[in-house]
């Protein structure tokens, strides 16, 4: 039987190659990248300043926080999870790191470490409730999103933390944000940090055993379990990494604005979700991947930047952003059908 089947296979495979160029397949693989190129062309024609290095640097700087947070989300997506709490974790880390400087006069290292530890605790809490209590991840992280948001607000007493702020007892705060810390949010460091994170996570997900395990879990959890993969361990890892990267995003944000506004991280959630989902289809990956997420973030960044340059009012921006997101998803899911 196998002999005859082999011949039927080999005789039919050239037919497949000859088969007409599949437009949607092509669009699926390269649609995002083509869109980016098109946007660059359109924007640079509309305004030559668009292609100047200072503006490119500007775009990269503006997407770096979204990218870092979205990369964390990508990791949770790779185990077929969904971490909605990343925005609040970024807010929390932002508040914690600034308060460490301003309220407690801590060193850079301590400030960052405390913020990261807080994030790890959130990640552990998330994964405990998901893995042990078996709460569906999207619902659970929606719940923790509120909790963490509230914790951050309570911690800051719903006030913006900044240098020389007025403390509850009427005095001025004395702690200063260190100069080293302020560098973190400036180009080129912020861009380098983003690229390093994208690179490391890409390597981790694609080229290591652990990344492969995560995709296996995302593909079929039951099969993964029966293959002997410690599913729960990897889910915990995914949610901790997700929270950790969200916290790094929040810390970088803190360095960039040098203060902690209330709910500063919230705005990044939806952009991160958009970036990660646009990234699903990049180069035909068909699954969450770090490079795709980066490309997704670039698309969003270019769009926002270009629209500003074309003097589209800020209040109309979300219409375009949402429209492009819908388009990207249409291309992805039309093919999947």
């Amino acid at each position: 039987m196998s002999a005859s089947s082999n011949t039927s296979n080999s005789s039919s495979s050239p037919k497949q190659n000859k088969q007409s160029f599949d437009f949607f397949q092509f669009l699926y693989k390269y649609g995002t990248i083509i869109t980016i190129i098109l946007l660059i062309v359109i924007f640079s024609i509309a305004n030559p300043a668009f292609l100047q290095w200072s503006n490119i640097e500007n775009i990269l700087r503006s997407i770096s926080i979204v990218t870092i947070i979205a990369i964390g989300l990508t990791i949770s997506l790779s185990v077929n999870g969904f971490d909605l709490s990343i925005g609040s974790v970024a807010s929390l880390a932002n508040a914690v790191v600034i308060s460490m400087f301003v309220w407690y006069g801590q060193s850079t290292l301590i400030a960052i470490l405390v913020a990261l530890v807080a994030a790890i605790l959130v990640g552990l809490l998330n994964s405990f409730l998901i893995v042990k209590m078996r709460i569906p991840d999207m619902l659970l992280t929606l719940a923790t999103m509120f909790v963490i948001q509230g914790v951050a607000l309570t911690y800051t007493r719903s006030a913006t933390i900044s240098e020389n702020m007025i403390m509850p007892d009427g005095s001025y705060s004395e702690g200063m944000i260190t100069d080293v810390f302020s560098l973190l949010g400036k180009a080129p460091y912020i861009i380098i940090l983003m690229l390093v994170i994208v690179f490391i996570v890409h390597i981790f997900l694609t080229y290591t055993k652990h990344g492969r395990y995560m995709y296996v879990i995302g593909g079929n959890e039951e099969a993964a379990r029966l293959s002997g993969i410690p599913v729960n361990k990897y889910k915990v890892l995914a949610y901790v990494l997700s929270a950790l990267l969200a916290a790094i995003g929040g810390i970088v944000l803190a360095s960039r604005v040098m203060q902690a506004e209330i709910n500063a991280g919230e705005n990044y959630l939806m952009d991160a979700v958009a970036a990660a989902f646009i990234g699903l289809s990049v180069l035909g990956a068909g699954k969450p991947n770090a490079l795709g997420t980066f490309v997704g973030a670039v698309l969003i960044g270019i769009l926002a930047n270009g629209l500003v340059m074309m003097s589209v009012p800020y209040y109309a921006m979300d219409i375009v952003k949402g429209g492009v997101f819908a388009l990207a998803l249409a291309v992805t899911y039309y093919k999947l059908k």
């Binding site: 995709y215 593909g219 079929n220 099969a223 068909g286 699954k287």
Partner: peptide, 9 residues
């Protein structure tokens, strides 16, 4: 199909 393989891989 449910427990042994990853159909999308």
């Amino acid at each position: 199909r449910k427990e042994g393989v990853l159909v999308e891989e």
